[in-house]
Design a protein around this nucleic acid. Sequence first.
RNA 1: GGCCCCGUAGUUCAAUGGAUAGAAUAGAAGUUUCCUAAACUUUUGAUAUGGGUUCGAUUCCCGUCGGGGCUACCA
Length: 597
Amino acid sequence: MHALVGDAVRKACSELFSVELAEGQLQLQKTRKEFEGDITVVVFPLTKLSKLSPEATGEALGKFLTEQVAHVSKFNVVKGFLNLSMSAEFWKGFFAAALKQDDFGFASPNSAPHVMVEYSSPNTNKPLHLGHLRNNFLGYSVSEILKAVGHRVTKVQIINDRGIHICKSMVAWKNYGNGETPESSGLKGDKLVGKYYVEFDKAHKAQMKALIKQGMTEEQAAQQTAIMQEAQEMLRLWEARDEATIELWTKMNGWVYDGFASTYKSMGVDFDKLYYESNTYINGKEEVEKGLAAGAFFQKEDGSIWIDLTDEGLDQKALLRKDGTAMYITQDIGTAILRFRDFPDLAYQIYTVGNEQEYHFKVLFMILKKLGFEKADQCYHLSYGMVELPEGKMKSREGTVVDADDLMEEMATVAQEVSAEQGKLEGLPEAERNQLFHIIGTAALKYFLLRVDPKKNMLFDPKESIDFNGNTGPSVQYTYVRTQAIQRRYAEAHPGFNPKEANSEGHTLSTAESEVVAKMYEWPAVLRMAATTYNPADIAHYSYDLAKLYNAFYQDHQIVKETDEQARNFRLALTYKTGVVIREAMRLLGISMPDRM
RNA sequence: GGCCCCGUAGUUCAAUGGAUAGAAUAGAAGUUUCCUAAACUUUUGAUAUGGGUUCGAUUCCCGUCGGGGCUACCA
């Protein structure tokens, strides 16, 4: 429609005003719903060419377009806006074509370049929390959206399994754990390890207090506590491959992975390949050595290796410690290069990481460039905002962290309560019901987190449970369930009915019907936009809009009971296709559709 | 201190420089002898502030005020 009208307006301008439109002078937008029409030409930019008032220019264009262009049936001019209406045949023709196209809106698989999407990337010393949920849902959804527009996608995560943080948990477990295991305690593995991370912090704080009393400054004390020294010693032992340390490390990380696996399963996300920092940090060290030899980096007297980014307006940045051990950024250098080596056809990679690390990635990409890495420009930081609580940022020390498992479970409970209130699902076996509650609960959560522009910070209030009414996941699910229920009902009396084949040639579309069709028409463009901006929120909003229009249509149209065969066939087809588009759109958000609820 | 991001109905979110700033929720008023009311209909209510650019600014530029983040030989 845009292309059709765009070309026509260009032609009109050259014939009416004898000028060629420059890029940017042609402005087309969807007509606002207060006005009559489907597509609007913004006339202001054209007045300079036409040398007429905005109104007169609009009238002239409108007259030309309705007379000369097929499918443009009517026009009206309001101020400087030319509203064009497409003909009924245009909408019916579009719907008939879309109906038969099972992959309507989607590009064919592997028709676009191979991309890698990194997300999740947890530390292995504590359980996943609300921030990880936004990260995982976003990364998973962006991957699905990229696949939908034809990319081959490899989903990965880098597991931060190495470093002082895990050593802290290890020391605390060794000192205070009495051999406790997930089996003996009944705790999920990641929760158990997280518990000892907190234990470490407690002991460390207590020891600091004592040292400060003896006259040390806070900074000194933080370095000097016995337990901190022990953790640092453990890190040294780990890098030296000390057998007992590696054994403990392997065991505790194993517990964490078991815990994560169950959380990921509950979230409905997965990965094609895992990278472990404990492997990639070695590559990073090698790359840093190479860079030093090539003169990209420099070494300080104490032996530490740095990069000078002051020319770029940034600071100097350490890349390797004086004792030669790797830092966070060291392994990131190695990982980036390793990934392109693992997948030679990789066009680019996307890092789904919070916006507090924007500086880190800016520096990382600059380092890669200085190293002469040819794919340095093919790395993109998909930066997303934090999830804030009413009292501000989540802080594990203050116990204000919202745990991922707890939250998902709570959402399922709310789903159960809502369902019970309305007396639904009573005949269903318990296992099936619980599965439904999980599907509905996670839908509410995913939609809540994905409907917001990823770049923006957002607020979550744990005291107010996430809504199930209005612009929410369950509400969209409900509409889908409605489309399925109607089709089931019709099939009872008419087995073998195929909405794709049913004849509705003679049916004239009502306003509500054509609004649903017009919204459906937008789907391919919405999907492309979401893919180019890495923004699942576009898809969430679209799904809700479509569901809302369908519900309005449903409200005052008979479907199964409609006596006119052509009208009934059309409405059944519309119901079928709306269901398909909603299901596919929500699938791209990682939200699955129940058959009933 | 320096750098970056954000201030939109009571609240949570929308709005490629375009029309009368949209939704949801909360508040008010309605709709179930008819395919599931997690729905539908009506209604109240907002661009922090002062300038500038523009035919036109929530959007772009500058200042002020407010909020957040980064600025480790932590990850």
